[in-house]
Lab assay of single mutants.
Amino acid sequence: TRVETATETAWISLVTALHLVLGLSAVLGLLLLRWQFPAHYRRLRHALW
């Protein structure tokens, strides 16, 4: 049971790290898009909202 718990903890930390990385890359990508294509971003936002 001790090994299982350790594996579970490792998986949880791995998944958390993955989610953090994905979230950060998504935010960075959005910022980059907004910085590179302001007109396109505004049009996209206008279409979405």
Results as ranks from 00 to 15, higher is better:
residue 1 T to K: 09
residue 1 T to D: 03
residue 1 T to G: 04
residue 1 T to E: 10
residue 2 R to Q: 14
residue 2 R to T: 15
residue 2 R to F: 15
residue 2 R to Y: 14
residue 2 R to L: 14
residue 2 R to I: 14
residue 2 R to M: 14
residue 3 V to W: 00
residue 3 V to M: 03
residue 3 V to K: 01
residue 3 V to Q: 01
residue 3 V to F: 02
residue 4 E to D: 09
residue 4 E to Y: 10
residue 4 E to G: 05
residue 4 E to F: 08
residue 4 E to W: 07
residue 4 E to V: 12
residue 4 E to I: 09
residue 4 E to L: 08
residue 4 E to K: 07
residue 4 E to T: 10
residue 5 T to R: 00
residue 5 T to C: 02
residue 5 T to P: 01
residue 6 A to N: 05
residue 6 A to L: 04
residue 6 A to S: 14
residue 6 A to D: 02
residue 6 A to G: 15
residue 7 T to Y: 10
residue 7 T to D: 01
residue 7 T to G: 07
residue 7 T to W: 08
residue 7 T to M: 15
residue 7 T to A: 15
residue 7 T to N: 11
residue 8 E to Q: 00
residue 8 E to L: 01
residue 8 E to W: 01
residue 8 E to P: 08
residue 9 T to N: 08
residue 9 T to A: 11
residue 9 T to S: 11
residue 10 A to M: 06
residue 10 A to I: 08
residue 10 A to W: 12
residue 10 A to V: 09
residue 10 A to E: 11
residue 10 A to L: 08
residue 10 A to Q: 12
residue 10 A to K: 04
residue 11 W to N: 05
residue 11 W to P: 02
residue 11 W to I: 13
residue 11 W to Y: 11
residue 12 I to H: 07
residue 12 I to F: 07
residue 12 I to G: 02
residue 12 I to M: 08
residue 12 I to C: 04
residue 13 S to K: 05
residue 13 S to V: 11
residue 13 S to D: 00
residue 13 S to R: 06
residue 13 S to N: 07
residue 13 S to A: 13
residue 13 S to G: 14
residue 13 S to M: 07
residue 14 L to M: 10
residue 14 L to W: 00
residue 14 L to T: 04
residue 14 L to G: 03
residue 14 L to I: 08
residue 14 L to P: 02
residue 15 V to T: 07
residue 15 V to F: 08
residue 15 V to D: 02
residue 15 V to C: 06
residue 15 V to Q: 08
residue 15 V to W: 08
residue 16 T to L: 13
residue 16 T to M: 09
residue 16 T to A: 15
residue 16 T to N: 04
residue 16 T to K: 02
residue 16 T to V: 15
residue 16 T to R: 03
residue 16 T to F: 11
residue 16 T to C: 13
residue 17 A to D: 01
residue 17 A to V: 10
residue 17 A to S: 09
residue 17 A to L: 11
residue 17 A to C: 12
residue 17 A to H: 01
residue 17 A to N: 00
residue 17 A to F: 08
residue 18 L to T: 08
residue 18 L to C: 07
residue 18 L to N: 04
residue 18 L to E: 00
residue 18 L to M: 10
residue 18 L to Y: 05
residue 18 L to D: 00
residue 19 H to I: 15
residue 19 H to E: 08
residue 19 H to W: 15
residue 19 H to R: 00
residue 19 H to L: 15
residue 20 L to F: 14
residue 20 L to D: 00
residue 20 L to E: 00
residue 20 L to P: 04
residue 20 L to V: 15
residue 20 L to I: 13
residue 20 L to S: 07
residue 21 V to W: 05
residue 21 V to H: 03
residue 21 V to T: 14
residue 21 V to Q: 00
residue 21 V to S: 07
residue 22 L to H: 01
residue 22 L to W: 05
residue 22 L to N: 00
residue 22 L to K: 00
residue 22 L to M: 09
residue 22 L to R: 03
residue 22 L to Y: 04
residue 22 L to C: 10
residue 23 G to F: 11
residue 23 G to I: 15
residue 23 G to D: 02
residue 23 G to T: 10
residue 23 G to W: 05
residue 23 G to K: 01
residue 24 L to W: 03
residue 24 L to N: 03
residue 24 L to I: 14
residue 24 L to A: 10
residue 24 L to C: 07
residue 24 L to Y: 03
residue 24 L to V: 08
residue 24 L to D: 01
residue 25 S to I: 07
residue 25 S to Y: 06
residue 25 S to R: 04
residue 25 S to Q: 07
residue 25 S to M: 07
residue 25 S to E: 00
residue 26 A to R: 02
residue 26 A to N: 02
residue 26 A to H: 04
residue 26 A to W: 10
residue 26 A to V: 12
residue 26 A to E: 06
residue 26 A to L: 14
residue 26 A to S: 12
residue 27 V to K: 04
residue 27 V to E: 01
residue 27 V to A: 08
residue 28 L to Y: 06
residue 28 L to E: 00
residue 28 L to I: 05
residue 28 L to P: 00
residue 29 G to S: 12
residue 29 G to Q: 05
residue 29 G to F: 15
residue 29 G to K: 01
residue 29 G to N: 02
residue 29 G to E: 02
residue 30 L to S: 08
residue 30 L to M: 10
residue 30 L to A: 11
residue 30 L to G: 12
residue 30 L to N: 00
residue 30 L to K: 05
residue 30 L to H: 00
residue 30 L to P: 02
residue 30 L to Q: 04
residue 31 L to K: 00
residue 31 L to H: 05
residue 31 L to S: 10
residue 31 L to F: 14
residue 31 L to G: 04
residue 31 L to Y: 13
residue 31 L to M: 14
residue 31 L to I: 11
residue 32 L to C: 09
residue 32 L to F: 09
residue 32 L to K: 00
residue 32 L to Q: 01
residue 32 L to H: 06
residue 32 L to I: 12
residue 33 L to V: 10
residue 33 L to K: 04
residue 33 L to H: 01
residue 33 L to E: 00
residue 33 L to G: 02
residue 33 L to F: 11
residue 34 R to C: 12
residue 34 R to N: 05
residue 34 R to K: 14
residue 34 R to G: 07
residue 34 R to D: 03
residue 34 R to Q: 04
residue 34 R to F: 08
residue 34 R to Y: 09
residue 34 R to E: 01
residue 35 W to H: 06
residue 35 W to M: 08
residue 35 W to R: 09
residue 35 W to C: 10
residue 35 W to N: 08
residue 35 W to D: 04
residue 35 W to E: 06
residue 36 Q to P: 05
residue 36 Q to C: 10
residue 36 Q to W: 10
residue 36 Q to I: 13
residue 36 Q to T: 10
residue 36 Q to H: 15
residue 37 F to H: 05
residue 37 F to S: 04
residue 37 F to P: 00
residue 37 F to N: 06
residue 37 F to D: 04
residue 37 F to A: 06
residue 37 F to E: 04
residue 37 F to Q: 00
residue 37 F to C: 14
residue 38 P to C: 10
residue 38 P to K: 15
residue 38 P to N: 12
residue 38 P to V: 11
residue 38 P to S: 10
residue 38 P to W: 11
residue 38 P to E: 11
residue 39 A to L: 13
residue 39 A to M: 13
residue 39 A to D: 14
residue 39 A to T: 11
residue 39 A to N: 14
residue 39 A to S: 14
residue 39 A to P: 05
residue 40 H to I: 10
residue 40 H to P: 10
residue 40 H to L: 11
residue 41 Y to L: 12
residue 41 Y to A: 14
residue 41 Y to I: 14
residue 41 Y to M: 15
residue 41 Y to Q: 06
residue 42 R to T: 13
residue 42 R to D: 10
residue 42 R to S: 12
residue 42 R to V: 09
residue 42 R to A: 15
residue 42 R to Q: 15
residue 42 R to M: 11
residue 42 R to P: 07
residue 43 R to F: 07
residue 43 R to Q: 14
residue 43 R to Y: 11
residue 43 R to N: 13
residue 43 R to T: 12
residue 43 R to V: 11
residue 43 R to S: 12
residue 43 R to K: 14
residue 44 L to I: 15
residue 44 L to F: 15
residue 44 L to H: 01
residue 44 L to V: 14
residue 44 L to C: 10
residue 45 R to Q: 06
residue 45 R to M: 06
residue 45 R to V: 07
residue 46 H to R: 09
residue 46 H to S: 11
residue 46 H to Y: 10
residue 46 H to A: 15
residue 47 A to E: 07
residue 47 A to R: 14
residue 47 A to T: 12
residue 47 A to I: 12
residue 47 A to W: 10
residue 47 A to L: 10
residue 47 A to N: 07
residue 48 L to A: 09
residue 48 L to F: 11
residue 48 L to E: 02
residue 48 L to G: 02
residue 48 L to R: 00
residue 48 L to I: 15
residue 48 L to H: 08
residue 48 L to K: 00
residue 49 W to E: 02
residue 49 W to A: 06
residue 49 W to P: 03
residue 49 W to T: 09
residue 49 W to L: 07
residue 49 W to C: 06
residue 49 W to I: 02
